[in-house]
């Protein structure tokens, strides 16, 4: 028993050292680099865009109905926040994304792992999965409506589908890209099937999986706008579509800013979670 445990630990160490040989050093160095530079550089482009935007409205390059001045949009943003329009709609949208992302994420993970681990499952499902994943959400909506109606279920399914695809693909790719010699190490230590998954597949596939999860979240957030376009009277995407319908482009731009900001926050949050979860890799140094 203790021998088995020892071999497991040993195998883990071997694998950790192996997987850790990827270019983590560079990233670490960059992270510890100048904070001020790290905070300034990403702001340059938005500031330049803001400058161009302000100039465009000051000198009337673009009709103010199409591109309202930054101050007008800021005023709208403040108004919409004060009236609760933004917070209420954002809350509704966030809940939709959360459910859709959780369901799609788990399903995508299971499906991706199954297709990645079992050539049989892959042979059965992968071509169909690929074909289905390439059909845009808009095409599914009328059909889905017949089965699940136009309520929240429809929206969550569409968001879940958008999440599922990149996660499943990332899982399949992540597993297929694990070098063959990792598995050889596993067979040397006579790993059981479960141990192979637990100590070889999962750790080696995690970076790719995280990429998939981040992409999945991006897609979920994008799908939100599509589902809120139809059969909805609330949500941040709806607010945007409605603003366009009513020729209130300041509302459209205000919601664009909110959607972009939330998307950025989500992505940063995941990045943070990733670096926390993958800390064990760094402990190899």
């Amino acid at each position: 028993m203790s021998i088995a445990a020892d071999t497991t630990t040993l195998a883990r160490q071997v694998l950790v050292t192996k997987t850790a040989q990827r270019p983590w050093t560079g990233r670490l160095l960059r992270r510890s680099g100048s904070w001020s530079l790290g905070l300034t550089l990403p702001l340059l482009l938005p500031l330049a865009i803001l400058g161009a935007w302000q100039s465009a409205s000051t000198w009337h390059w673009i009709s103010p109905q199409i591109l309202p001045a930054p101050a007008v949009v800021w005023g709208t943003l403040v108004d919409l926040t004060a009236s609760g329009d933004i917070t209420t709609n954002l809350g509704i949208s966030a809940l939709r994304v959360l459910y859709g992302f959780l369901i799609g994420g788990i399903a995508g993970l299971v499906l991706g792992l199954a297709m990645g681990l079992s050539p049989t499952v892959r042979a059965y499902l992968y071509p169909t999965f690929n074909a289905i994943s390439l059909v845009p959400a808009l095409g599914w909506i009328p059909l889905l409506m017949m089965f699940v109606g136009i309520g929240e279920t429809l929206k969550i399914i569409i968001i879940a589908k958008a999440t599922l695809v990149p996660i499943a693909i990332a899982a399949v790719q992540g597993i297929r890209n694990i070098p063959e010699n990792y598995f050889e190490v596993g067979s040397v230590f006579r790993f059981s099937r479960w141990q192979v998954v637990r100590y070889i597949v999962l750790p080696a596939a995690v970076p790719s999986l995280f990429n998939g999860v981040r992409q999945g979240l991006n897609h979920a957030w994008l799908a939100l706008v599509v589902v809120e376009l139809l059969a909805s009277s609330e949500g941040i995407g709806y607010l945007m579509v409605w603003g366009r319908q009513l020729f209130q482009l300041d509302v459209v731009i205000a919601t664009m800013i909110v959607i972009g900001a939330v998307g950025l926050l989500l992505d940063q949050g995941l990045q943070f979670a990733e670096s926390r979860l993958l800390r064990w890799r760094r402990s190899a140094y």
Binding site: I141, P142, M145, M146, F147, G149, I150, G151, L230, A231, S232, S233, Y238
Partner: peptide, 19 residues
């Protein structure tokens, strides 16, 4: 209970008994 639907989605929703 007013629901925003374009005509084609509206028909699908009605045939599905949703509206």
């Amino acid at each position: 209970r007013s629901i925003n639907l374009d005509t084609s989605s509206g028909l699908a929703a009605m045939l599905a008994g949703e509206i």
